[in-house]
Computed example of a mutant assay.
Amino acid sequence: MSDTDTNHVAGTHRTVAPVTAAVVGCVFLLVGILGFVPGATTGFDGMSFASHESEAMLLGVFQVSVLHNIVHLLFGVAGLVLARHHASARRYLLWGGVVYAVLFVYGLVVPEDSAANFVPVNAADDWLHLGLAVLMIGAALLTRLRPTEVRVSDAA
């Protein structure tokens, strides 16, 4: 069995990139689910499919819509699927980070009350997107430089 084959066998060593991509994917799934939960999301009754007119606020801070939540769910599933191999996990982290960098710039140039703000995003989202971009791209680059391994338990 080659080193790359052991990345998806329970109880074997996995590189940091797949573990990181899986954790990021799980966080996005959690955020996507919470976006539909009244209480975790305020203004839920007026949540629109997409647009700046959505009044829903995840954790009272981040503006969300049905489309925004669906994107989080899909991004989470992609992270879990691509976490199966080192190379695809690194691509997920790198290109996901690039997407979030673009979303950061998008949030800076598109006014919050504009029809072009279809995601929708607010200032808190913009800063979160910048942080995600830096963390994801950094993780992709660091896992390329240091193929450190972590032990995945048999229970995982």
Rank of each mutant, 00 (worst) to 15 (best):
V152L: 06
V109L: 13
S54R: 07
D126C: 02
L73N: 03
R90Y: 08
S114F: 10
F118L: 11
D126V: 07
A156H: 09
A50M: 13
D113M: 09
N69D: 15
L128I: 01
V16L: 15
Y100V: 10
L132M: 12
E53W: 00
P120T: 04
H85M: 10
V27A: 14
F62P: 03
N117R: 07
V66H: 04
W95P: 06
V105H: 08
F104A: 04
R151P: 01
D45Q: 13
R14C: 03
V109W: 11
A123H: 09
H129Q: 06
V98W: 03
F104C: 10
I70G: 03
N117L: 11
V77R: 02
V16G: 00
E53Q: 15
V19E: 09
V102Q: 10
L141R: 07
V152T: 06
A78H: 02
L93R: 06
H129L: 07
A133K: 00
G138D: 05
E112Q: 14
L29R: 07
L135M: 13
L82D: 03
M57G: 01
L82G: 02
T148P: 00
V105G: 03
V9W: 02
N7V: 00
H8R: 08
H129G: 05
L30Q: 02
L94I: 10
N122R: 05
H85E: 15
G32I: 11
F44H: 15
V71E: 01
F75L: 15
W95N: 06
A156V: 12
A87M: 12
A124N: 07
S153P: 15
T20C: 08
G96C: 04
V27D: 05
Y106D: 14
A22S: 12
G39E: 13
R14E: 11
A155K: 13
G131E: 10
G35L: 08
L145P: 00
A17D: 05
A22E: 07
M47I: 12
G76P: 10
A87H: 15
D113Q: 14
Y106A: 11
F104N: 01
S2V: 02
H129M: 07
L74K: 01
T20S: 12
T143D: 08
M47S: 04
N7H: 13
S54Q: 11
P38V: 07
Y100P: 03
L59D: 01
P120W: 07
P147R: 14
V98F: 03
M1N: 04
M1Q: 07
